[in-house]
Design a protein around this nucleic acid. Structure first.
Length: 412
RNA sequence: GCGGCCAUAGCUCAGCUGGCAGAGCGUCGGCUUGUGGUGCCGGAUGUCACGGGUUCGAGCCCCGUUGGUCGCCCCA
């Protein structure tokens, strides 16, 4: 029979991998709650239009990178490639866009993109994210970034990670900037890489993050957006960065950060590291003032970010340790009832405890060691008769006789 | 969609110019019938990724496929 393997770009989370994953999500959930975010869970698949609206036709995203399928009712459905669109759709579907804004949403869960896997990049991967829906104020941008920064701090990974911030301005600023960029790159068109010559026609902003050596020289002399900002867009950017400083979040300006889609405006930011090969972005986000309208809701200015759990897991300074239970060991079968009673006692006291299902005492000791038990509670005929147990510390090897009544307190 | 590198035991890997399939770790058993982890002795484990080809003979050479990995494209 053919050996079954996980499908390309998917993987199992077991042992240390799962503990890292859990730590990232639990920590993010806890910190996000401190900032007033409530957790939402939206469906893993949606009507394809939830994701295709607003994407336009400038990229391969819709045609090549979504897991889309037709269900038995003939509807086109898509496994969610990201969760911002789903959250915006949920806001509208549940009638929440009408009142009580802004709404602050945290989410965590699997996402799916049909891509070639590489370091930190999978076909089923996991994201956490925070969105503030219905807030046009720059304080919202700064707060959502501060929350992301705080999560990374709580995970102990801010060493080597830098927050880069830029603005895309408003529509008027961006149109002017795009024109200037096209003029600059057109003047060097023949020197551009083949990829970038295509970008020049399709999505000129993307030339700014080309990895081609020759392109980079031309990019270096390309204009920044800042001279093209309208007065109000410039004021918005100044307010966001001022609030970041007030929140004590270290940041630096990177005028090369862009976004490809039209519904983005103003703030764009990325937390980047050089420790993940080609996949240097750890957490990325920005302001999207047009997306909720794309979902059929009212104009709802919003800002948020998403982060890949796999990448955050790889950056954890150390793996969370495996839990170390207490092993309860009857010396012979005759002590099994007392062993079960001790198990119950320990678990009721909130102490993780295990019992082997078979084997003599030696086997059970070996198993206790293998599962990483921190202590063994050994119940023999003599101990049981006197209401005692042997309590053995499996790290030091020290063993002492203790009354059963004191067990839980000694192991807490 | 495109390219570089890789694929031998559960894991990490060695395998000479093409000549009997190997090591360490792990695992199992024993030394030790009321004590793990450290010691000593012993055992088991392979479609050498898959399919073709060359050869007296292929883990090794050639072609293809699949998978992994690192990049490119893309990155909502």
């Amino acid at each position: 029979m053919e050996k079954l393997q996980p499908v390309r770009g998917t993987r199992d989370l077991i042992g240390e991998d799962q503990r890292r994953h859990t730590q990232v999500i639990d920590t993010a959930r806890r910190i996000a709650a401190l900032y007033g975010f409530e957790e939402w869970t939206t469906p893993i698949f949606e009507d394809t239009r939830v994701f295709s609206r607003g994407l336009g036709d400038t990229s391969d995203v819709v045609s090549k990178e979504m897991y889309s399928f037709t269900d038995r009712g003939g509807d086109s459905l898509t496994l969610r490639p990201e969760n911002t669109a789903g959250v915006c759709r949920a806001l509208v579907s549940n009638g929440l866009a009408q009142a009580n804004l802004p709404r602050k949403v945290f989410y965590a869960g699997p996402m799916f993109r049909y891509e070639r896997p590489q370091k930190g990049r999978y076909r089923q991967f996991h994201q956490i994210g925070c969105e503030i829906l219905g807030a046009a104020e720059p304080l919202a941008d700064a707060e959502v970034i501060a929350c992301g920064w705080h999560i990374q701090q709580a995970l102990g990974m801010t060493e080597g990670v830098v927050l880069e911030v830029n603005t895309l301005g408003d529509a008027e600023s961006r149109d002017a900037y795009r024109e200037a960029l096209v003029a600059h790159f057109s003047a060097h068109a023949t020197a551009l890489s083949a990829d970038s010559q295509v970008r020049l026609a399709k999505n000129p902003l993307r030339i700014l993050d080309s990895k081609d050596e020759g392109d980079r020289k031309i990019v270096a002399t390309a204009p920044d957006i800042h001279p093209y900002l309208t007065a109000s867009a410039a004021a918005f950017y100044a307010a966001v960065t001022g609030y970041l400083t007030a929140f004590a979040v270290p940041w630096r300006e990177n005028p090369r950060i862009v976004r490809g889609l039209d519904y983005y405006s103003h703030t764009a930011f990325e937390f980047v590291t050089d420790r993940l090969g080609a996949q240097g972005t750890v957490m990325a986000g920005g302001r999207y003032d047009g997306l909720v309208e794309e979902m059929g809701g009212p104009a709802t200015p919003s800002v948020g970010w998403a982060a890949g759990v796999e990448r955050l897991s790889m950056l954890l300074p150390e793996a969370p340790p495996a839990p170390r239970p207490v092993a309860v060991i009857p010396v012979t079968e005759a002590q099994e009832p007392q062993a079960l009673a001790a198990l119950r006692l320990l678990r009721s006291a909130g102490i993780a405890a295990e019992i082997g299902y078979k084997g003599n005492m030696k086997r059970r000791m070996e198993r206790a060691n293998r599962i990483g038990a921190r202590a063994a509670v050994i119940l023999g005929e003599d101990e049981v008769a006197a209401g005692n147990a042997q309590l053995k510390d499996l790290t030091t090897g020290e063993q002492m006789l203790v009354p059963l009544a004191e067990l839980a307190a000694l192991l807490r």
